[in-house]
C-alpha cells in the first residue's frame, strides 16, 4: 500500500436481501463496545463485528482484499476506528455508492483510499472475484465487468501517497 494507484485484490460484495448493503453505520463497522482500544493493530478483529451476515469478516479477510458496499457507508459517529480497523487487516480500499461525510474525512485524513461509485447497479460484481480498483480513473473492474465512478481527488491522493494527513504535513516542510 505504498501509494499504489491501481489496487488488485479479492472483492467483498456486501449484500443485504440480495442488494448492495446500504446505510452501514459506524456501529456496524466497529462497535462502540471496543472504542477504548487505541492501538490500530488490535482494531482489525472487530471489523464488521456487528454487521449482519458478516460477523466473521475479520477471520475471513485477507490482506489485499477490497470491499464494496451501497449508499451512505460509514454514517453515524466520528470514530476513526471504523477506518483504522480495515487498515489493520490489510484491506486496501473501500468502494461504495456513497459515504457518510465524517467517514469520508476520516478515511482521507488517515490515507485510506475510498472510491465513490454513484449509481452502481446491484449485481454488477461477483462476491470474492478478483477485482481491480483504479484510483486515478475511479474505475472498478472485475472479469468483463467495469464501472466508472469518481476519481480520487488531488487532496485525497496527496494524503494517500504521503500515508496520512500529518505525514503529508512533513512533505510540505521546506517546500513552503
Amino acid at each position: 500500500m505504498n501509494g499504489e494507484m491501481v489496487l488488485r485484490g479479492r472483492l467483498w460484495v456486501l449484500k443485504q436481501d440480495g442488494r448492495l448493503f446500504s446505510d452501514i453505520d459506524t456501529d456496524m463497522i466497529y462497535h462502540n463496545a471496543h472504542l477504548a482500544v487505541t492501538e490500530t493493530e488490535k482494531m482489525g478483529q472487530y471489523a464488521f463485528g456487528n454487521l449482519e451476515g458478516y460477523q466473521n469478516f475479520a477471520d475471513m479477510a485477507e490482506p489485499g482484499d477490497l470491499v464494496l458496499a451501497g449508499d451512505n457507508f460509514g454514517s453515524g459517529s466520528s470514530r476513526q476506528h471504523a477506518v483504522d480497523c480495515f487498515k489493520a487487516l490489510g484491506v486496501q480500499a473501500v468502494a461504495a455508492r456513497s459515504f457518510g461525510a465524517i467517514y469520508k474525512r476520516n478515511a482521507i485524513n488517515s490515507g485510506f483510499p475510498i472510491i465513490e461509485l454513484p449509481g452502481l447497479p446491484d449485481g454488477t460484481f461477483t462476491h470474492h472475484a478478483m477485482a481491480e480498483l483504479d484510483l486515478m480513473e475511479g474505475t472498478l473492474t472485475s472479469g468483463d465487468r467495469s464501472f466508472r465512478g469518481n476519481p480520487i481527488s488531488r487532496v485525497a491522493r496527496d494524503i494517500y501517497i504521503a500515508g496520512g494527513l500529518f505525514q503529508y504535513a512533513e512533505t510540505l516542510k521546506g517546500g513552503r
Binding site: 466520528s78 474525512r105 482521507i108 485524513n109 487532496v155 494524503i159 494527513l165 500529518f166 504535513a169 510540505l172 513552503r176
Partner: peptide, 16 residues
Amino acid sequence: MGDVDIAFAFKTGKVW
C-alpha cells in the same frame, strides 16, 4: 472541524 484537522491547520495553515 475535528481536533486532527485543526492541529493540521495550526501546523500548515491549510485544511482540505
